[in-house]
Design a binder for these strands. Structure first.
Lengths: 224, 224, 224, 224
DNA sequence: GATGAATGAGGGTTCATTCAT
DNA sequence: GATGAATGAACCCTCATTCAT
């Protein structure tokens, strides 16, 4: 017991301060963007003296990079988890959509930081050192699709990379373009409450498109 | 008479100055975002004196609003044009994808301004007074789909609004998330050169999903 | 008359503000050094808004560079003037010492800025674009010495560049090392009031060194 | 006993730490100047914790003062050594020049700290408590000159204090104004490699000035 | 004796906007 | 209509110093 507290003496709470800064940074950077976000905002949010930022981080940009990293890593964990699933393509696909949706819904900071990164041409993201290079999901999806194709359940000519982009696009866009789209589509669309119908729509679209399909009716029953 | 014509060039110059400002504003706002963009940048780009901004516009925010409006209008024209098309759903759908893609590829300022607007919770976009409220495309698409359903070519239960969101998502995301996605998918994906394959993938996905479809092979021949 | 004021409308005194800034910069930079000097000090001294520094100059370093330049130019004018003098070496040499002394006494900012520059390894000075490269004085001194040598009045083996360094050293050091030297030599030495004896000492030293010289007594009479 | 020896290393370490700090301080203060030098720089250089500065010294200014003192003392030792020499004036003079040159060449920190002190109007130097007040050299030089004058080898009217200032000026200036002078005189002058010619020039200048001297030719041979 | 976390003050720089001509 | 000088607020970052362990 004593050894536990002795191990991390937390003299004047070094790690805690750093962590509070990092978490506040994620919020503030996600909210205002890497440029408009101010060190003052972050410090107020973290209840930490402004000077400490430069104690724990090189400068604002370093803090931003590490904040971005911390969010990226959460997403990467999801990717790894999803990549390890061995499921029939139909189920894998629905799983992907559901888990991506949930993740994006629960991590709005991720959505915003990614959006800001793209607006800045991936300036910081491309400097991040990630553990893996390719999305693990792509491998899992390739396996599942190959099996499905062999069984004649899926059509030929599907580029897996393109498909993954499409899946992610259908999820991400819902969160990233919420505000401007609701303008065109009316108030009811694209609200949080509307999530389940949206997920079903996407899964159906991915599996069958808009066309009638031989086993269409069966599928409908199976799905839910 | 002479004095009248002598005065007019001033007015014409006035309008020219205003227009130059507006165009420069679109570029600079799209590039740096509504906050980081500076009046100085815009004036340098427009080769116009800084004071003129406050002559033709109320303030920076007003200039931004009008710049955003000018870009929105171009997109709205496309919507109207697409909304007036009476085509079978399959063709309409491909038309939508192709035209959206082309528009977004040719108007990167639109993509960026929309992205910035969403990050700002549509703060300015929602103040814009547009000529129409609902997307005209949605009507055209509804008609086409209804006809197709009646003929048994399309499955039931397709929410047209959701479908339009999906279509646009599949187009927009390609441009808005270029940088962070290419990291996960490797260099070849999501480049300009890769556009045609992407368009075909999206159209196929929308029409058929990933599943085998009875009239699949026939379609393939018709398409191209 | 009217045209004169019309030519330089001095709308809101653009050049005057710039000049006040430059003069204040010379003082403050000379006093505190290029690093410790603050923009605030300079602006207070110049009675100018802080923002204007960045209107007329790129940044602090640019202001420093131009301040340094403005002082260098005064010295260069002296060099040119001295370089144009055609005098017997003895008189030229005394002239050099007297004029250097007077200049350094009247331009303490020059002495200090030069000292700071050397401490900074000539960082800014070497970027200055001066009108001429070599000291004009060196040519004049070479001519005078050659004549004197031909007449057998001066000894051989005198390197003119070294001599000029020595002359300048004997003048400059008096002002640059005033404080630490007076400590070693007692209070009376190296005060302003002590200038004339010092000048005579230097001139005598340069002409005759410490040794007895054949025409020593005659010289003494001629000199003064 | 054992405990006593066990404690001692701590004290020895303590003195070692203090010494490391002092030496680092000399370097950093000399390089950046008393103001721009940072405690952090000094501690990094000394590989010592920042807090230790305030353990061994009152504050930054105290550290600076002691650093300055430590360098002054080395120079004072030289003065004492030179002051104890009983040589004919000619030899003493050459000895002074050679030893001053060597000292300044080997102690660039001394040159820089003196220069900074003068720019700060001797603020700290005048607070230093030195063992002697007058330069010991001045006594030795007075004796030597008096003897030479009595023998008719040196001219009358030489102020020894002024002469010593001149000697030191001719040495010091070479190191303190290296950068700005080389600009005016071209690259070859004032480099380390050029030291021996410079020393000879200075000695010759001090002894004979520029004028022809009766025993000039003999001297030339004697000198080297 | 030694460590490193914490702090407040201040400096350089940027920016939208107004004022005078 | 057009120009450019002037301003105050705010932001990032640095530094000497003190406090807690």
């Amino acid at each position: 017991m004593a050894s536990k507290t002795a191990r991390k003496p937390a003299r004047r709470n070094a790690q805690a301060t750093r962590l509070r800064l990092l978490r506040a940074a994620v919020k503030v950077f996600a909210w205002h963007g890497p440029r408009a976000a101010t060190i003052d905002d972050i410090c107020t949010q973290a209840r930490v003296n402004k000077r400490m930022v430069y104690h724990y981080f090189k400068d604002k940009d370093d803090l931003y990079q590490q904040a971005l990293m911390s969010v990226y890593e959460k997403f990467y964990s999801l990717e790894v988890e999803l990549g390890s699933m061995l499921l029939p393509a139909e189920q894998l696909l629905e799983m992907l959509v559901r888990r991506y949706y949930r993740f994006l819904a629960e991590h709005p900071t991720f959505v915003r930081l990614i959006a800001y990164e793209n607006l800045n041409r991936g300036r910081t993201a491309k400097r991040l050192v990630l553990r893996g290079q390719k999305a693990p999901v792509i491998t899992a999806l390739t396996l599942a699709l190959d099996k499905g194709k062999a069984e004649g359940r899926f059509r030929e000519g599907i580029d897996v990379a393109e498909l993954l982009v499409s899946i992610f696009a259908l999820c991400f866009f819902y969160f990233s373009n919420h505000y401007t789209m609701s303008r065109f589509l009316g108030a009811k669309a694209m609200t949080r409450a509307n999530m389940e119908p949206r997920v079903r729509h996407v899964v159906a679209l991915l599996l069958d498109g808009i066309s009638v399909h031989e086993s269409q009716s069966d599928k409908e029953h199976d799905e839910r």
